[in-house]
């Protein structure tokens, strides 16, 4: 499956990933190469094979719904570029 420039731009949009227009042909070539490479998986008959999500087949561990962490808002927000009164700031969304 080859990905053309429009495909690359569409996927980049889905991933909210800015790419330079001049780099699109190279991405298109690289991604097509990678997809051609993984294409060999299709030659294998996997009918009835259960997908493996966890190597040890472990299931999600549950814990009691109790508070286990202390409030570290200030510490965690100290690594954000723009905050105000404990809130993260982003460009205005609603007019």
């Amino acid at each position: 499956m080859a990905l053309d420039a429009a495909d690359v731009e569409k996927i980049a949009h889905l991933a909210r990933l800015g790419i330079n227009p001049e780099d699109v042909p190279e991405y298109s070539r690289n991604l097509s190469d990678i997809l051609a490479f993984v294409e060999q998986l299709n030659a294998v008959d996997t009918t009835g094979v259960e997908p493996l999500a966890h190597p040890l087949e472990a299931t999600q561990r549950l814990r009691a719904d109790v508070v286990s962490e202390s409030d570290e808002r200030e510490n965690f927000q100290s690594v954000a570029q723009v905050t105000e009164d404990g809130l993260y700031l982003v460009p205005q969304v609603i007019e």
């Binding site: 690359v8 996927i11 991933a15 990933l17 800015g18 790419i19 991405y27 690289n30 991604l31 997809l35």
Partner: peptide
Amino acid sequence: SRGEGFGAEVKRRILIGAY
């Protein structure tokens, strides 16, 4: 932020994965 913050190989993998 993502376009300027990530390099080429990371972008390739994000794109393949998203696809």
